[in-house]
Amino acid sequence: MTLTSKPLAAILFVILFGGIMFSTAMGWWQTESTKEAATYTEGEFAGQANPADIRGSYTFGDVEKNFGISPDVLAQAFNVQTDNPAAFAAKELETIYAESEFEIGTASVRLFVAFYNGLPLDLSTDMYLPQSGADLLKARTLTPDQLAYLEAHTIPNATADPSAPTVAPAQTAEPAPEAESTERAVKGKTTFQEVLDWGVPQAVIEQIMGVAMPNPLTKIKDFCAEQGLDFETIKVALQAEVDKAK
């Protein structure tokens, strides 16, 4: 069988658009996130939504649909002051907790949801909660391991910035302690320059990163993403060096 250009063009259109139409009919054609969290594939919780799949684009309303936790509870847990908590996206926590000693963001929502619903979550990385979230969780049933993790990962003085974008100003947040701004903590917006300034030599940084250090003004988190490095692991190693250099 020999094909010329016109039949080939026709077949191309039929297969391409036919395939798209078929997948649409089957419900497979999704061009944006369905905001349905992946489920556990094995074990006691198989088939239930897995909080590890919560993305930064998930709103508190999406979290409610997947995990049944009211947006009001989530807003209370994270001190989010807004008229419409259901529309608040998890990734916005990083903005309103920009001054926090440790990062509070999407991972914090995953932690809160997992503990609130008694679901398993990989705790090998550090995820932090503000005191308000920890207090809500302590009223629930937690295992000793979960309680211990919570104790070690609660930031008592973390305060949400009411002036941050996307959050309607409401109540006045607690002022952050003065010492917090001078804390030497490696977090999402820390640059290489800051770590150098805190006394960690470039050679040590490069040894931890495994690659040459870029422009010192680069944010470590951004660089890790570019290089495919795990920021959480790098952060812990750098923090240890920062603590040593104090």
Partner: peptide, 13 residues
Amino acid sequence: HESAFVLMIIGFV
């Protein structure tokens, strides 16, 4: 998203 997966399969066909 799923659409990229569908297009990948169509591309392979």
